[in-house]
Simulated scan of single mutants.
Amino acid sequence: MSQRTALRPILRPRLFAATMSTQVAVAAAVAGIGFYALYSRRNAAPSDKPIFSSFGFNKLKLHSTELINHNTKKLRFELPNADQPSGLTLSSALLTVSFPSGRWLPVLRPYTPTNDLDEKGFVELMVKHYPGGKQSTHIHSLKPGDTLTFAPIPELKWTPNQHEHVAMIAGGAGISPMYQLARGILKNPADKTRITLVWGVNTDEDLFLANEFNAMQAKYPGRVKVVYVVAQPSASSPHPKGFVTKQILESAGVSPTNEKNKDTKVVVCGPPPMEKALKGTKSLFGGVQGGVLAELGYKPEQVFSF
């Protein structure tokens, strides 16, 4: 569901911070590639390969929608071959392309599928609606039978057991890539990577994947640890009030000073202010200044942002 703020090159310019000229150039380039890809696919022989096993833009039909909390929908899209999975690898996202409200330039946003990547016939997104959000508003308006254009985006190339421990730090809708990665790790019996998740949200209702993560923690005690932090918890909330801070991360056990965390990969996905607080800012000479993760002792090469 993750409406992340970054698309990795060439498809990941900082959409929020980009100038209008950059937006237009990127949009035009992607649109051109997309139209070429769609034209080529119409004129190519049918392929037996999964639809997203290689780069290309494809329209998928919306099968069903489900409102799972006050602002988040689960949407299931039909794959063209009901007997094949999507072809996406761990971990991958999908770039969505639309022209809402008659726009002549496309709106581009990445989302991470939340269903099992081996599921045949469908791809599933959980999309949070942001007030004024062009893509989330458009996607929430879709009805079964409507179509949306997608292209695959490879993210972090995950290698089983490359790291003893992965620390996942998510904010709000940034939980989607964490969910996909955690499920993929635990599904592979050869992958023994330990998982710690710290998820910060605004309200208890925003913990829309809590049941799924709680089930992982119960099934893999000692290997999966989940910590929730709520900015505005209800009176009966069992979760700590606040934000993802250095103290929260230390209490969650993700500090690299912990002997068990000598080989830790940190993955981050959240709103820009959260990521800036965690990762710091780049200096004019390419270094990183400040940031909670640096204060804890993590090096830049240990941290990956979805």
Results as ranks from 00 to 15, higher is better:
264 T>Q: 02
264 T>Y: 09
264 T>D: 01
264 T>N: 10
264 T>V: 13
264 T>L: 05
265 K>I: 08
265 K>Q: 15
265 K>H: 13
265 K>C: 12
265 K>S: 13
266 V>D: 06
266 V>H: 10
266 V>F: 08
266 V>Q: 11
266 V>R: 07
267 V>C: 13
267 V>Q: 05
267 V>K: 10
267 V>F: 08
268 V>W: 02
268 V>S: 04
268 V>Y: 01
268 V>P: 07
269 C>V: 02
269 C>G: 01
270 G>K: 00
270 G>S: 03
270 G>F: 03
270 G>A: 08
271 P>I: 04
271 P>G: 00
271 P>H: 03
271 P>R: 01
271 P>F: 01
272 P>W: 03
272 P>G: 07
273 P>M: 10
273 P>Q: 03
273 P>E: 05
273 P>V: 08
273 P>H: 07
273 P>G: 07
273 P>I: 11
274 M>S: 11
274 M>N: 12
274 M>D: 05
274 M>W: 04
274 M>H: 05
274 M>K: 09
274 M>P: 10
275 E>I: 12
275 E>N: 13
276 K>E: 11
276 K>N: 06
276 K>M: 14
276 K>V: 15
276 K>S: 09
276 K>Q: 14
277 A>P: 06
277 A>I: 11
277 A>R: 05
277 A>S: 09
277 A>H: 03
278 L>R: 00
278 L>A: 07
278 L>I: 09
278 L>D: 00
279 K>P: 08
279 K>D: 08
279 K>R: 14
279 K>E: 10
280 G>F: 00
280 G>H: 00
280 G>N: 05
280 G>Y: 01
280 G>A: 08
280 G>D: 02
281 T>A: 10
281 T>G: 04
281 T>K: 12
281 T>V: 15
281 T>P: 04
282 K>N: 14
282 K>I: 12
282 K>Q: 14
282 K>E: 13
282 K>Y: 10
283 S>I: 12
283 S>N: 14
283 S>Y: 12
283 S>E: 09
283 S>K: 07
283 S>T: 15
284 L>A: 14
284 L>Q: 11
284 L>N: 15
284 L>S: 15
284 L>F: 12
284 L>I: 06
284 L>R: 12
285 F>M: 13
285 F>H: 12
286 G>C: 02
286 G>L: 03
286 G>E: 11
286 G>F: 00
286 G>R: 00
286 G>D: 04
286 G>I: 02
286 G>H: 01
286 G>P: 11
286 G>W: 00
287 G>I: 06
288 V>S: 13
288 V>H: 04
289 Q>F: 13
289 Q>M: 13
289 Q>W: 13
289 Q>T: 15
289 Q>R: 15
289 Q>G: 09
290 G>C: 05
290 G>Q: 10
290 G>Y: 02
290 G>L: 03
291 G>N: 02
291 G>H: 04
291 G>Y: 08
291 G>Q: 05
292 V>F: 10
292 V>Q: 04
292 V>I: 14
292 V>N: 07
293 L>Q: 02
293 L>N: 02
293 L>E: 04
293 L>R: 04
293 L>V: 03
293 L>G: 03
293 L>A: 08
294 A>Q: 10
294 A>C: 01
294 A>M: 09
294 A>G: 13
